[in-house]
Structures are given as C-alpha cells and as structure tokens.
Design a protein around this nucleic acid. Structure first.
Lengths: 198, 198
DNA sequence: ACCGAAATTGAACGCTCATTCAAAAAATTG
DNA sequence: CAATTTTTTGAATGAGCGTTCAATTTCGGT
C-alpha cells in the first residue's frame, strides 16, 4: 500500500512548498514553477495530485484552517475548565503555532483576499468564522447576561482578526504576545463591565 | 489651460474604473484591458498618465487613503469638541462614506495584501496607520492615565481593522452600523475601566 | 481655415505562466 | 528477470497580459 503513502507525502510536500513560496513572493508570485522548484518535484505533478493550481491553493488553505483548529484543541486540553480560561486559550491559539509567524499570516491574508472571488474558499472561511464565534459565545454565556453575549463575541473575533492583520502587515514587528495581552485585557474588561454570574 | 483639466479628468476616470474593476474581478483580474474598457479609454493611456499599471494602482490607493482622511476631517467639524466625541467621530469616519461599501472594502483588502510585497504601498499604509494611532492617542490622553493610552489606542485601531475585514469578507452582510456601535461600546468600556480624569 | 502641439489610439511584440501529454523512470507483480 | 502498472518528468503549447510606439485624432491659437 505504498501508493497511499506516496500520495500523502507528495501532497504535503507541495502544500509546504506553496506556503513557503507565498510567504517569499506573495500570492501573485506563487507560480507552479516556483512551487515545483521548492518542493523538488516537477511542474506536472501538481495537476496529477491536485488537478491544477486552484486545487493546490484550496488544499493549502484547508491545511491552514485545520492547523488552527488543532492548535485550539491542543491548548484547550492544558487549561483548567473555567469559562474564562477557555476564552484565554482560544486567544492564545489564534496567536500561536502555525498562525502567527510571518509565513502563515501573509498567507492567511492572501487567502482572505482571494476568497472574496472564489466561492469554495469563501465557504471554508465562513465555516471557520462561525466556529470561532460559537466557541466564544458558548463560554461567554457563563460570564455575562445573554443580551451581551453575541456582541462581546463579535468584538473579540474582530479584535483577533484586527491584530492578526496588523501583525501580518508589520513585517513581524508587532509581537504576538502583545496582541494576546490586549485581547485578554479586553475580555476581562468586558466580563467586568457586564458583571453578572451565570 | 485645458491641459491640466484634461489630465485631472483622465486620471480620475482611470482611478474610478480601477476601483470598479477590482471590485468586480478582484485584484488579480484587474487588467489594463478591462480598466481601459470600463473607463472608455484605450490601453495606451495608462502608461501616458501613470507610467504603467503599477503607477495607476498606487494612485488608486492614494485616492482611497485621502478619501478616508477627508471623511475624518469632515466628521470632526460637526462634533462638539470633547475628547469622547472626537473619538466617536473617528470611528464613524472609518465606517462611513467611501470606506464601507463593498467596492472600497474589497479594494482595501486587496491593497493591503499587495502592500506586503510592495515597498511603496507599504509606506503609504504605514503613514496612514500612524496617523490613526496618534489621533486616537491624542484624545485618549484626556480620558485616562498615560500608561493605558497606547494600549487602548492599539486596541481601538485593531477593532476598526477587524470589523472592516469582516465587513469586506461578508459580502456586505455585516452592517457597518453594528460595527460602529460595538467600537463605541468598547471605547466607553475602556474609558470607564481606566476611570481617571485628565 | 491652417498649423503645430498635445492627446489618444490600438496593433504588434515579448514575456510569463498554467496546462498538457508523450515519454521515461520507478515500483509492483507474476 | 520480464511484464505491467503507477508515478514522474519537462518540453511544447497556447492563452493572457503589460508595454511600446508609429499613426491618428483633437485642440488651441492665429
């Protein structure tokens, strides 16, 4: 059954190369030729495993999304099971691991831009957004009255995206740790301002 | 002196066409040919007035930036001169006029993505970012102790960007008015939490 | 009406890139 | 080892794009 093994390996090689090339040359500069060169494979292989460039790009975005999801799950495990700690873990996950460092944040932004003109990518993006929002709302419900839950969740989500954007734009000059701190400060402020036990 | 008049008109025609084409076809699909067709002019005219496609794109971004700046100035004039009202005016400006509607927000996002690989666009972006931040800090200084000023300003800026991003991604489904409300709610929360007169 | 200058055109050119596919290489099987 | 299938290659292809520039049109002044 080496066939499945090879296929998995090749797909991963190409996705890794795609991330690297987008980070170096931008979305526009990410050509099949460069990706093939970086991966050490040939240009023809892309069509063989992904059906074309578009397929490779979608697979790469899927890879980023699932990495984010894995980071969230992992950080959730290591925390006390209080609503506040869970919220903090979500923030941490969104600024940790694969997400933060220049390679990924540039790629995220590129995909977001691209997604606006590609229904498939748009759908993926929307699923991810909904998951983040409902995650946040689930824990916020235990910390404040219902009417404020949705607004607060939307604000936290916007804050995460905003700092992400700034981190991506600043050529890595804005420290992720600072973004995390400010997000957490807001969360505590919001809890305090809407002070009501579950 | 019709010469200057014509030049101004042509430049504006091309910039308008660029905005329209980017909104319809995305940054990638914005070709000289389409822009020329929409503007009703020929492809050669772009090189004549802007030196090339890159020049036209930079001019278009400059146009967006100055529109934003004009919105800020205009809304400032109609408000009572209290620090809090000034902050609210900044928020309003960032979600009003040219800024919010699909055409511009998609284009903003495209430019941000592009800016990461183009020093000229990056410089423009950075100037704008600094102006927003120092604007916010100027008024916040009168509402809270110095140590919290910068953090709060960064959070407001991130919030604005985050909601902007979401508005752009949601195909106009997120109401700008809602984003404004949530930004303002945060500002009042932050003032309250760091309660100290000037 | 005429002329020179400015503005505008758009076909031609050269370049980049994604895709294709016949051939080669590698792996698997008998 | 030979036969067969799977995997990989990369040159050829053609489409799309930005730029150029000689030719044409428009305009302002006289």
């Amino acid at each position: 059954m080496a066939r499945i093994g090879v296929e998995t390996i090749r797909r991963q090689q190409l996705i890794d190369a795609t991330l690297q090339v987008i980070e170096e040359h931008g979305f526009q500069g990410a050509t099949i030729g460069k990706i093939a060169a970086v991966s050490g494979l040939s240009v023809g292989i892309v069509s063989h495993y992904f059906g074309g460039k578009q397929g490779l790009l979608e697979a790469t975005m899927r890879h980023l999304l699932s990495s984010l999801q894995q980071d969230v799950s992992k950080l959730m495990k290591d925390r006390p099971n209080t609503p506040r700690e869970r919220l903090m873990a979500i923030v941490d996950a969104n600024f940790s691991g694969v997400q933060t460092h220049a390679q990924s944040s540039k790629t995220w932004l590129a995909f977001w831009t691209q997604a606006m003109h590609s229904p498939d990518l748009m759908r993926l993006q929307r699923v991810n957004e909904r998951r983040l929002l409902s995650n946040l709302m689930f824990y916020l419900r235990e910390l404040m009255p219902e009417p404020q839950v949705r607004s607060t969740a939307q604000t936290i989500a916007a804050l995460i995206d905003g700092f992400w954007l700034r981190a991506a734009m600043s050529e890595g000059r804005i420290e992720p740790s600072q973004a995390v701190t400010l997000c957490k400060t807001y969360i505590d402020q919001a809890i305090q301002a809407n002070n009501g036990a579950s």
